[in-house]
Design a binder for these strands. Structure first.
Length: 150
DNA sequence: GCCAACGTTGGC
DNA sequence: GCCAACGTTGGC
């Protein structure tokens, strides 16, 4: 099993929103690195840290899992959709997404600030300056370490 | 293929 | 709201 972290702005889509639905297509990602991970690497059953970004206390708030592996992000084809990309062709889609499902809430938010305080996690892309990836891999050791902080 | 301009992300 | 970091675009 692989582990991941996905960022979401709670104003747009929060952990509560995820809990309220059966599953959610992770659409709108327009970054090649993130695209490659969703298209090629994320497998059904993989676990995901659900991270709230761009909010009062950015941090990990819950756990989700992959329920559908990479498939074309059709919102790129729709000019009416906010995520329209004219360069993505239905015959040769540029963007992919996965479906994820709520697993559980963490007992408390593990904030970005707290994550930065642990030298054990210094290699995580998340705590590195200027990182902008919205989907990133989490090393198994880091996954367990972070859950140990809960 | 270089690189300046521009847009976006996201913490603070 | 500011701004640093960084990805993308497009002229040359």
């Amino acid at each position: 099993m692989n582990y991941w972290l996905m960022k979401s702005e709670p104003d747009a889509f929060s952990l509560d929103d995820l809990e309220a639905v059966e599953s959610e297509p992770w659409d709108g990602v327009r970054n090649y690195q993130a695209r490659n991970m969703m298209r090629d690497q994320m497998k059904v059953g993989d676990r995901i840290f659900f991270y709230h970004s761009n909010c009062k206390v950015p941090g990990i708030v819950g756990i989700a899992e992959v329920v559908r592996e990479g498939y074309p992000d059709h919102t790129a084809f729709d000019p009416e959709a906010g995520y329209f990309d004219p360069k993505s062709d239905p015959d040769k889609p540029r963007w992919y997404m996965v479906d994820v499902r709520f697993v559980r809430r963490l007992k408390r938010t593990i904030s970005l600030q707290e994550l930065k305080e642990h030298p054990e996690l210094a290699a995580m892309p998340l705590v590195r300056k200027g990182n902008r990836l919205s989907v990133m891999p989490v090393a198994e050791a880091d996954w367990h370490f972070i859950l140990g902080l809960e």
